[in-house]
Design a binder for these strands. Structure first.
Length: 305
DNA sequence: GGCAGTCAAGTACGC
DNA sequence: GCGTACTTGACTGCC
């Protein structure tokens, strides 16, 4: 079990998600912004390596407008060496990496334009990971999408769109249960059809479920990740008190987290903490998980499997 | 320097 | 059919 947090670090004083308004696009602005974002990602990786936080979600905003027609700058060529160097650092330090396209990426949309923009976004994100030289265990996670008034038909559209994806995307794509529309049971149903690995979001599952205990879920989860996919990824969060159901906690609920750890101790997976204070909670999680035989905080502890 | 309004992209839902 | 919520950090214009 590697532990990590998504996208940004609140204590090192830089952001890997800097962007700018579409109206102020220029090649220079894009080049400078990407250079700053990559420099910050470099700092985040160094920070995480020094603290044993070996699971990191890379922000989708690393290259602003990467898939927008306005983007004419050849950023892949320009930054090829930088991406390769960052990837080398990840491999040397035993990192697991993921990416998570946001709400606009929908493989089951009935609109062909939205579908082609979604595929372009998946191509961009997988290209970043490929340029970093990261293996198939590095994943891009998406939700199943919208319901569009007919869930069965919408799941069927996902299957059809998935089958037409390039191998480069298929090798990395995994699906995650959400808290409103598609449960982990729905993800498993798609898994049966197309063999895609399932990411388990424990917090979403607590909100949307069919009463399945984790004892039923985890064996199916593990079975959905084949050897080149690595061990499963799991997202964890808890409810922010006083906010609407599904609002992620600002700070870690230590009791809830310890209950999660002990309730899942039979299974190994990499754990993404979706808590708003980011690295702070992740560092607390490392401390709370000390002594858990699953925990890995240094590359030499990597399992010999 | 600080604040409030706004931002590429989509869907669901209430009125 | 239309406006708003969702989620959310960062940019931008205005004071």
């Amino acid at each position: 079990m590697r532990i990590g947090y998504p996208c940004i670090n609140r204590s090192i004083g830089c952001s890997p998600s800097r962007t700018f308004r579409l109206a102020s696009y220029s090649d220079e602005r894009l080049r400078d912004t990407v250079a700053a974002n990559l420099a910050c990602l470099d700092r985040i990786l160094a920070y995480n390596a020094s603290r044993g936080l070996l699971f990191l979600r890379i922000t989708s905003d690393l290259v602003p407008f990467a898939t927008h027609p306005v983007c004419t700058f050849a950023w892949m060529e320009h930054f090829a060496e930088t991406f390769a160097r960052l990837g080398e650092f990840c491999r040397d330090n035993g990192f697991r990496i993921s990416m998570h396209p946001d709400q606009f990426v929908l493989l089951n949309t009935p609109d062909p334009d939205i579908l082609s923009r979604s595929i372009a976004e998946l191509e961009y994100q997988t290209a970043v990971l490929d340029m970093m030289g990261l293996d198939r265990a590095v994943k891009v996670q998406i939700h199943i999408g919208g319901v569009y008034g007919d869930k069965a038909a919408s799941m069927e559209r996902f299957v059809e769109a998935y089958r037409r994806l390039s191998p480069a995307i298929k090798n990395r794509l995994v699906i995650e249960n959400d808290e409103r529309l598609y449960s982990v049971a729905d993800c498993f149903a798609l898994r049966e059809r197309i063999g895609i690995p399932v990411i388990f979001d424990a917090f979403h599952h607590a909100i949307l479920n069919h009463g399945e205990p984790v004892q039923e879920i985890f064996p199916r989860l593990l079975a959905s990740w084949k050897r080149p996919d690595g061990i499963p990824m799991v997202d964890y969060s808890s409810q922010e008190p006083g906010k609407r159901t599904g609002a992620h906690a600002e700070t870690m609920d230590r009791q809830d987290f310890q209950a999660f750890l002990s309730g899942t101790r039979s299974w190994d997976f990499d754990l993404m903490l979706e808590i708003k204070d980011k690295e702070r909670s992740a560092e607390q999680a490392i401390a709370l998980a000390r002594g858990d035989p699953r925990l890995i905080t240094r590359p030499e502890e990597k399992r010999r499997s």
